[in-house]
Design a protein around this nucleic acid. Sequence first.
DNA 1: CGTCGTTGTTGCGCCAACGCAAAGTTCCGC
DNA 2: GCGGAACTTTGCGTTGGCGCAACAACGACG
Lengths: 240, 240
Amino acid sequence: MATIDPSLVAHLPLFAGFGTEELSDILREARSVRFARNSPVFEEGQDAHSFFVLLHGHVRATKTTPGGEQVVVRYVAPGETFGVAMAIGLPRYPATATAVDDSVVLAWPSATWPRLVAKFPALATNTLQTIGSRLQETHTRVVEMSTQQVERRVAHALLRLAKQSGRKVEHGIEIDFPISRQDIAQMTGTTLHTVSRILSGWESRGLIEGGRQRIVLREPHKLFVLAEATSGEDGPLERP
Amino acid sequence: MATIDPSLVAHLPLFAGFGTEELSDILREARSVRFARNSPVFEEGQDAHSFFVLLHGHVRATKTTPGGEQVVVRYVAPGETFGVAMAIGLPRYPATATAVDDSVVLAWPSATWPRLVAKFPALATNTLQTIGSRLQETHTRVVEMSTQQVERRVAHALLRLAKQSGRKVEHGIEIDFPISRQDIAQMTGTTLHTVSRILSGWESRGLIEGGRQRIVLREPHKLFVLAEATSGEDGPLERP
DNA sequence: CGTCGTTGTTGCGCCAACGCAAAGTTCCGC
DNA sequence: GCGGAACTTTGCGTTGGCGCAACAACGACG
């Protein structure tokens, strides 16, 4: 088991304020593991054996309802932590994590967490900040789902994905991992049919460019306007 | 300014694992403040001068959209912390907190947080657990809003309120603070009209008993069945 | 290079829930 | 105890988006 180079992770929020010495200490407990595209990292309900930092690739977290419907909780980008159930006192993972692309993660056995926190209290405060911002984001999502209609929610979702995991390409910004209409539906609380209709509409207006599991934002600014449009206001343009 | 008796708060999750000695130390920094019904404790966007523990009463946290619509983020019950923006690294309150009933809170200046955490690291881990469960609850809410229709969401909301803040009365369980149809609409992402229709229906079926800002659950079990009912019995969409 | 599974598109009918409107009820201050 | 404000109920017309269904396009794999 090769030791991980501290410089790889020194800049991550989780390790803010740590020196190389301490980092090595922490990294000594971790293993790096590779997951192939579409393979599960862990499953909802499993006991939370490890917690993770994503080094490379992308991971999707989903929850499944008793009825079997899936909802995408979030997409994990490189540098982010996930699977921290143990840290927040859950014995089991509350969601399923799947690599949506070939991915590399650092994994710590959950059992090491208490010891690490005892030795490095900053880990707790750093994690607190991370979980805190996730709570904010989730609240924002609740507010959106409560007050906005589907088209605006989808616009927001795309813009967020682009911001988090966008890659500049010739004609705009491409979301740099495979993502289906179904995925977007599960992020925004709608159906793949409705998403497909909306994206088709945007494509014909030149706002985006689609493809199989692929989306390029050609006019992010126009999308943004669409996302922020206050419906109560009298808009200068009516839909043709 | 009277000192607060440690025994009042020793059992709270925030102070789990603390001794009387340490508690006194922490409580020395707090003031207790009373808020009259319908008065604001703090407003969204204000800077986060304090963090709070609710001792008595009930507090509602809401977010307001640019368009002016309000969404209820949560109801705070006695013993819970709120306004912990500072702890999660936010300079400003992300939501408005309003006393929905005459309430008494303990308030610590936010500036004391870093010092308290440095001295008592358990505060950070306790808060991490609290914020973690709130994140879980919010995710559950997202899943519900994504997959269930309004009636079931309202049923879930009432059951949750009853569990958190229900008071046993002669004919069932009464939600023990004033709550309007509008509030419930803002919790479930619907309109007060729809909530009113649903509650009227339930009332005529004997499931609940309503009144101005007042709800009694007469048949919690039937409500529960309603909330959990799997309507679309067939195989849902699965990811292969 | 043909076949098959997966993903995306689109037309159509329908209904849950919204929005508006108006009236009824309860509470509070003066 | 009168008047008005806040809350609730209910009817009615409209509609956004769902569900079904059929098809088309793409990619993988033998």
